[in-house]
Design a protein around this nucleic acid. Structure first.
Lengths: 211, 211
DNA sequence: GCTGATATGTAACTTGTGTTACATTAGTTA
DNA sequence: TAACTAATGTAACACAAGTTACATATCAGC
């Protein structure tokens, strides 16, 4: 069963021999919606490969203030846990399933071994880091160069994309947590976006009309 | 001559055999202050190892607005160029020497080969990515959670550290560019920091009194 | 239905930051 | 020394975003 899901998204990424190894040593896990996958300060014993679903990666500072960094989709891995696993360090982020998701846990003992053995694994690791660095830069662009209304609209479109739906089941308060602002600000700007015809508001639900 | 400088910061990082190879294929280069090392959209033919000096890494969006991401010191490498070199992609950042610096350019052909051959190289690459991811997160924390006065004070202290001086030769306008704000704002907040006794202002010079 | 909890709407005000405009000071060069 | 340029100081105003306070709407369970 793992093999089938693995093949879906990784058969063009990994060599057959590597897929075989992953099937052998990988530990399959299903995550419920809102289940915590990685918490701040965790020491990872392996890295998760995302088979299906969507994972939210969140940063938290000392005072407990949160902000969304980016989302992971199927085919992605968490570069931050890779770091933590291979160097026995702590993880600086929190990972939460945005919806029901499926992962394979790869034990950290294999990570370095595979770097030597498989070119496809080396490429995957390097690519993952690059993708993550680029996501972080996009997040920085967003924070440094965009106003709150633009950021909000981008957030809604991004989230719709990774959830693969045009309408989101969420509350204003939840968005405020992700964007590190207050509920009142979000309500105000959402109403503004609605007036501009870009979205439609309902209780616990936001439809995106314009992408 | 390269070997001596290499040994200074990398003899405890790399195996002797790898140091030998670097000495053979690495291209030494000296950078003048403010010299451009990497520009936005460059395709890297190799990665730079920083032997000495300080490099500023800057992000720019489509509209040409800039913001400082982080600094590199001796012993560091530019993860973003690693990405670009190995995948033949474009570099999303700009790298400028903050002061006279020395680097060794490693040709991209060797990068993957060394991953297989040298454990120390694998560790170095992974570590570099991790350090950069963490720097990016710190930048995000700064943007998301801190006010301008705190950000400014942190900027001054960080810059003093990588320049290895307690007083900085810079103008308010230059700081404003790095922090993506206006000169007037910087002048205002610098004056405030001076009144708090944390710094002392002079023309083209800022002394940091309190760390 | 009624009641309580959760979610949303909105006004009024405060604050941090960006902007404009102009004055002053410190170097530089004729 | 005078004239010019670069750097800094500062006031006054505009605006985005955060805060407080309270009203209204929607849903779930009784």
């Amino acid at each position: 069963m793992i093999r089938e899901k693995l093949d879906n998204y990784y058969s063009f990424v990994f060599e057959k021999e590597l897929l075989d190894e992953i099937e052998q040593v990988g530990v399959y896990k299903k995550l419920r919606e809102n289940e915590l996958l990685v918490d701040l300060g965790d020491k990872m014993k392996g890295v998760p490969l995302l088979l299906d679903g969507a994972i939210k990666i969140v940063r938290e500072d000392k005072k407990g203030e949160e902000i969304l960094l980016y989302f992971l989709e199927r085919g992605d891995t968490c570069a931050s846990s890779f770091a933590s696993a291979i160097s026995n360090g702590k993880c600086g982020i929190r990972a939460i399933a945005e919806k029901e998701s499926e992962i394979v846990f790869l034990p950290k003992e294999k990570l370095d071994e595979w770097l030597v053995k498989y070119k496809s694994w080396r490429n995957f690791v390097i690519d993952s880091y690059n993708i993550r660095l680029n996501e972080m830069m996009e997040t920085i662009d967003t924070l440094a160069f965009m106003r709150m209304d633009e950021r909000l609209y981008k957030y809604l479109k991004d989230k719709a994309q990774i959830m693969r739906e045009t309408s989101l089941n969420t509350t204003h308060q939840d968005i405020a947590y992700d964007m590190h602002t207050s509920r009142v600000v979000i309500s105000r700007l959402l109403k503004q976006l609605e007036n501009e015809g870009k979205i439609k508001l309902n209780r616990n639900k936001i439809e995106i009309l314009e992408f």
